[in-house]
Simulated assay, not measured.
Amino acid sequence: MIELQTIMYGLSCWDCNSLINNGCNDPFKEDDFAMADCTQKFLPRYPNQPGTICRKIVQKVNDEYRTIRGCGYLDDAGKEIKPNEHLANECVKRAGTFSVLIQYCSCNGKDGCNHSHHLIVSSITLIIPFIFSLYYIIL
């Protein structure tokens, strides 16, 4: 009898913070950073959930921007993303009080998918229909 072994999908993501190194901003300078093996990264809050997605977060607080790239653990609804479960590239933009804006993009299609600026462009495609719907509600 042949025993089948489950292969765990190992995703590697760029891991940096523009507060420490400007090369983490856009345009991203890949030569300045190493990728992190997300299957080896855990959060204290979720000790049994390895990183299964790559994230790129852009924060704006009082006109100061910061970009953070790294492994992600949960989707937007707080649900675990299982290894090998495909996640479409998606971006979410949120605004708060006191000039606070955050945009985060998630992907797991390939290693290092959190490197590019095309993730930001896809968020614009989510925002445009929202703006048009507001326009028609106001009229």
Rank of each mutant, 00 (worst) to 15 (best):
residue 12 S to M: 08
residue 12 S to L: 02
residue 13 C to S: 09
residue 13 C to G: 05
residue 14 W to C: 04
residue 14 W to I: 05
residue 15 D to I: 01
residue 15 D to P: 01
residue 16 C to R: 02
residue 17 N to I: 01
residue 17 N to D: 15
residue 17 N to R: 04
residue 17 N to F: 02
residue 18 S to R: 03
residue 18 S to Y: 06
residue 18 S to N: 03
residue 18 S to V: 11
residue 19 L to P: 00
residue 20 I to C: 00
residue 20 I to V: 08
residue 20 I to S: 05
residue 21 N to I: 06
residue 21 N to C: 02
residue 22 N to F: 04
residue 22 N to Q: 10
residue 22 N to E: 15
residue 23 G to C: 05
residue 23 G to F: 06
residue 23 G to L: 07
residue 24 C to W: 06
residue 24 C to V: 12
residue 25 N to P: 00
residue 25 N to R: 09
residue 25 N to W: 04
residue 26 D to G: 00
residue 26 D to Y: 14
residue 26 D to I: 07
residue 27 P to H: 12
residue 28 F to R: 14
residue 28 F to Y: 15
residue 28 F to G: 07
residue 29 K to Y: 02
residue 29 K to E: 15
residue 30 E to H: 07
residue 31 D to E: 15
residue 31 D to H: 12
residue 32 D to H: 13
residue 33 F to H: 07
residue 33 F to G: 11
residue 33 F to A: 13
residue 34 A to Q: 12
residue 36 A to L: 09
residue 36 A to Q: 12
residue 36 A to I: 12
residue 36 A to S: 12
residue 36 A to C: 02
residue 36 A to P: 00
residue 38 C to I: 04
residue 38 C to V: 05
residue 39 T to I: 02
residue 39 T to G: 13
residue 40 Q to N: 11
residue 41 K to P: 00
residue 41 K to T: 12
residue 42 F to C: 02
residue 42 F to H: 15
residue 43 L to I: 09
residue 43 L to E: 15
residue 43 L to W: 10
residue 43 L to H: 08
residue 44 P to L: 10
residue 45 R to E: 15
residue 45 R to G: 01
residue 45 R to S: 14
residue 45 R to M: 13
residue 46 Y to W: 13
residue 47 P to H: 06
residue 48 N to M: 10
residue 48 N to P: 00
residue 49 Q to V: 15
residue 49 Q to P: 00
residue 49 Q to N: 07
residue 50 P to K: 03
residue 51 G to I: 06
residue 51 G to T: 06
residue 51 G to C: 11
residue 52 T to M: 08
residue 53 I to H: 10
residue 53 I to A: 06
residue 53 I to E: 09
residue 53 I to N: 04
residue 53 I to W: 01
residue 53 I to F: 10
residue 53 I to C: 01
residue 54 C to M: 06
residue 54 C to T: 13
residue 54 C to A: 04
residue 54 C to I: 11
residue 55 R to A: 04
residue 56 K to C: 00
residue 57 I to E: 15
residue 57 I to D: 11
residue 57 I to R: 11
residue 58 V to D: 03
residue 58 V to W: 01
residue 58 V to H: 02
residue 59 Q to H: 06
residue 59 Q to T: 13
residue 59 Q to C: 01
residue 60 K to N: 10
residue 61 V to Q: 14
residue 61 V to S: 12
residue 61 V to I: 15
residue 63 D to S: 09
residue 63 D to F: 09
residue 63 D to N: 09
residue 63 D to W: 04
residue 64 E to R: 15
residue 64 E to M: 08
residue 64 E to D: 11
residue 64 E to G: 00
residue 65 Y to S: 10
residue 66 R to H: 02
residue 67 T to C: 03
residue 69 R to S: 03
residue 69 R to T: 08
residue 69 R to C: 04
residue 70 G to H: 12
residue 71 C to T: 13
residue 72 G to C: 12
residue 72 G to R: 14
residue 72 G to I: 09
residue 72 G to L: 07
residue 73 Y to E: 05
residue 73 Y to Q: 09
residue 73 Y to V: 04
residue 73 Y to A: 03
residue 74 L to S: 02
residue 75 D to W: 06
residue 75 D to A: 05
residue 75 D to T: 05
residue 75 D to G: 03
residue 75 D to V: 05
residue 75 D to S: 03
residue 75 D to R: 02
residue 75 D to F: 05
residue 76 D to N: 13
residue 76 D to S: 14
